[in-house]
Nucleic acid binder design. Sequence first.
DNA 1: TCTTCTTCTGAAAGCGCTTTCATACAGAGT
DNA 2: ACTCTGTATGAAAGCGCTTTCAGAAGAAGA
Lengths: 338, 338
Amino acid sequence: MARNRIRLSEVAREAGVSPATVSRAISQPELLSAETLARVRRAADHLGYRPDAAARALASGRSMTIGAVMPTLDNAIFSKALQAMQAQLSGDGYQLLVASHDYSKAAEAECIRTLLARGVDGLILVGAERIAEAAQLLSQSGIPVVMTWCAPEGSPSVLVDNEHAGLLATRHLIALGHRRIGVITGATRFNDRQRGRYRGVRRALEEAGLTLPPALACEQATTLAGGRMGCAQLLDLAEPPTAIVGGIDLIAIGCMVEAQARGLAIPADLSVAGIDDLDMSAHVSPSLTTVHVPTARIGAEAARMMVAILREEPGPTALTLPVDLIVRRSTGPAPGRA
Amino acid sequence: MARNRIRLSEVAREAGVSPATVSRAISQPELLSAETLARVRRAADHLGYRPDAAARALASGRSMTIGAVMPTLDNAIFSKALQAMQAQLSGDGYQLLVASHDYSKAAEAECIRTLLARGVDGLILVGAERIAEAAQLLSQSGIPVVMTWCAPEGSPSVLVDNEHAGLLATRHLIALGHRRIGVITGATRFNDRQRGRYRGVRRALEEAGLTLPPALACEQATTLAGGRMGCAQLLDLAEPPTAIVGGIDLIAIGCMVEAQARGLAIPADLSVAGIDDLDMSAHVSPSLTTVHVPTARIGAEAARMMVAILREEPGPTALTLPVDLIVRRSTGPAPGRA
DNA sequence: TCTTCTTCTGAAAGCGCTTTCATACAGAGT
DNA sequence: ACTCTGTATGAAAGCGCTTTCAGAAGAAGA
């Protein structure tokens, strides 16, 4: 922190008012007479005054900082949400403090601890599931928490119905006549989003009286490479599936790449559907049928909700954003039913 | 900020020492006797004491916070660098304060202003070019700045040789016999990285005695869609190029998608090369020939350098990371030279 | 003219920590 | 025994701002 900066007291002297008045000019200008306000502003501009955030935070008990804890930044769905959060928050004078934990629940707790120590005014988290220590830190802290993607009933949240997303993708494949449908998800153990999507897939199959043989379901890293590996595994089965649902688009695209590398035509030999609707999904070839998840809006709405809560504005404190099926070229009739 | 937190003075009372001693136990434990230190630690653990970051920042003049100003988070190269920075910094007890400006120089200056007001101890920036106002803010602030990707001589930086990257990609195409080579870059006006790459392309062409007709060079958004549009533009020429260099992989991949959508075979009808080496570039079909840029390492090294500067450790203050050509399947001999 | 409000401004007490300076004490040297 | 170090701790003064409380000044009502 630069120690040679102009201080509030110097502005006060320059403007011929007390420090208290300068402080009010910054945070509660409506309390001052127009004339005084103008004088203070002129002095502040003239000296190039910038309030010291640490001092303000200490004196006021508010840091104007929101913490965001994400699994990773290295995945468009999260970096996009973050980008939207940041844009929304900075419009309201807040700043984002970012931490990521690479899908480790212990690291997540550590992130939360660090951000709390930084005195964030609120915390935006991904998913509902965390270790007891983290949950305790949160409840002790007394600051508002907004959860995204998944959340328990009753807590402030911006959600998507992951189960419904899985359901939509799978129903679409069933409607196309597919009966052997495979599913590749990310690790479900520490990831309630993937778990919900997987549940949706199963429910759609049950609805249609179909079963999901264990061999047709596998878990992989939530990356393109993971998708390739999962697809390879399914295609190597004695009875490979005619369609695959990927728990996220990255996995689905990995499937397509692997299938094409093996000389299969998509969708003639294999249909592939994803969930997320990344930018690139419309551009891969063939374009990917997927379930659109409004990632950026999740970020923006979470930020908006956080600010509303901090300002104690009334308003809905739980929001579920719609997901919808986007049919493109990567899915088609099951072989033999064209 | 929670106001019901345990304070340092309470720990002091519990441990039967002065507040100064507790403070030293936190930041300069080597000054205390083993016995006192243990007593203070026990008391702190027992009460669940967490120091208040704002108060520490105010009293010490150090916020233990580093600001990072990125063009966007919605591009893997930056989110990956950020992820690496964050991992590196948190190991050293620093936290990242992130801001993004969507390639607007005015917004960038505003980001810098905001982060400085937050009292960051250092600033990591992308690119060397910024408006005068921003440059002035930086020099006035007196805090260390590390620039990444591009930087003027003499300032602390972690660079890649963008010109060399453009050169490598283009030389490779020339070696394959291509003579009409098109180039699609991001806007070069406010982006010194893209400008450097473009320069490299031109230099390679000049070396080979080739020219770059204006029609074969175009600027587009640094997105997949931008690549598609640029490619469409080049392919619609009376004499389209036989090879295209994309200023970033995203553009190159967009080129491939567009060319394939028009029924062209890659690389038989058109060769495409990118620069960056995104994860996905190895997995698109055909896999993309590109110049590897060590994005994550840029982030990690910038963070490391920043900490070293803050600790006044000696060490190199400018680092240039190597780029190298990765030949994959998207480039091949020029038509008629197979 | 004298209250009674209202509106605006100032004085001063912190916010929770760090850090300088001073002090106390133990051991070493003479 | 007496100074001289050096080490371990404490007292107290801030860091730069916010906010409570009180007071001044002017407007309005009686």
